[in-house]
């Protein structure tokens, strides 16, 4: 295809958008609304994942060492824990430190050690952090295999529930996106079909004078893609204003909530929204052209 043919195609695409202004604006609005909802759902999922990550990173595995293991042997265990795949951090907590922590929690008024009859019943322990939450149950299992370990504790159930919630949100997000995406494609297809119909005489003459199918298709493709892109730009602008405000408000009033503020991730969402908008437009026009360009 020649460069001048693209000029012709752009000119024709703009001309037909101008001629079908109402339908064109309706399509742009639908794309914008659907991508806005898509963007919101996406940011919601990203934020819940972010929240899950933050919570997960605070999940710990406590491995209690058997009472008959010497302090020296207990300290040497560190290497074994570090050798387990997926472990991010290993901390040794001696029984003395454990008791101190317990004492702090109960307050200065009573002496726990006295209450226990001068004996510290707490075992030495290791505190492990996993790199990703999915690994926590597996790591706990492997820790249990170590002979010097008496037993293992971690936030059983909490991890699983958190992960289930994240996955569920992701699935719901995908379903919403698919449904709305289909609606947008349908509307663009309808709009392009109307354009094709309005220009059927022109298309007939083009075919008679020897225009190739692609020469005839390009303006419609461009029209669909431009409708998609303009809709996506509007959606991104609205989403950006909305999210920037949200972030500001959350930071000011609920700053314990870990809201996602990584600019790269958010820009990536915007970039994908623009691409998806253009893609929806192209798919919408392709559907119409396939069915209605038989002249």
């Amino acid at each position: 295809m020649r460069l001048s043919s693209f000029e012709y195609a752009f000119r024709d695409a703009f001309r037909s958008m101008k001629r079908n202004k109402v339908m064109c604006i309706a399509s742009i609005a639908t794309v914008a609304v659907s991508l806005l909802i898509l963007g919101c759902a996406w940011l919601l999922v990203l934020n819940s994942q972010h929240l899950a990550n933050v919570m997960e990173s605070e999940l710990e595995i406590n491995a209690y060492i058997k009472q008959d293991v010497t302090r020296e042997d207990a300290l040497n265990l560190r290497r074994k824990f570090e050798a387990i795949g997926g472990v991010a951090q290993v901390t040794f907590v001696s029984k003395e430190e454990g008791l101190k922590g317990l004492q702090e929690r109960f307050g200065e008024d009573t002496s726990i050690l006295d209450a226990l009859g001068g004996n510290n019943p707490l075992p030495d322990m290791y505190r492990l952090k996993a790199k990703i939450a999915e690994d926590v149950p597996r790591i706990a299992g492997e820790v249990e295999e170590i002979p010097e370990v008496e037993n293992v504790r971690y936030g059983q159930g909490l991890v699983e529930r958190l992960l289930a919630l994240t996955n569920w949100m992701r699935t719901v997000g995908v379903v919403i996106v698919v449904v709305i995406g289909l609606a947008a494609i349908f509307l663009i297809a309808t709009s392009i079909r109307i354009t094709v119909f309005a220009r059927r005489r022109e298309i007939g003459i083009m075919k008679l004078v020897g225009a190739t199918d692609w020469y005839i298709r390009w303006p419609f493709f461009l029209e669909g893609m431009m409708v998609g892109l303009v809709g996506a730009v509007l959606a991104v602008l609205a989403l950006h204003v909305f999210y920037a405000n949200l972030v500001q408000n959350v930071v000011l009033t609920l700053n314990f909530l870990p809201i996602l503020r990584d600019t790269n991730i958010i820009l990536n969402v915007y970039k994908w929204l623009l691409l998806i908008g253009t893609f929806l437009g192209a798919v919408g026009s392709a559907i119409s052209l396939r069915r209605f360009l038989k002249v």
Partner: peptide, 11 residues
């Protein structure tokens, strides 16, 4: 011009 553009003649 339309007929010439359709066969992709330069502008």
């Amino acid at each position: 011009a339309f007929a010439m553009e359709a066969i992709e003649m330069p502008r």
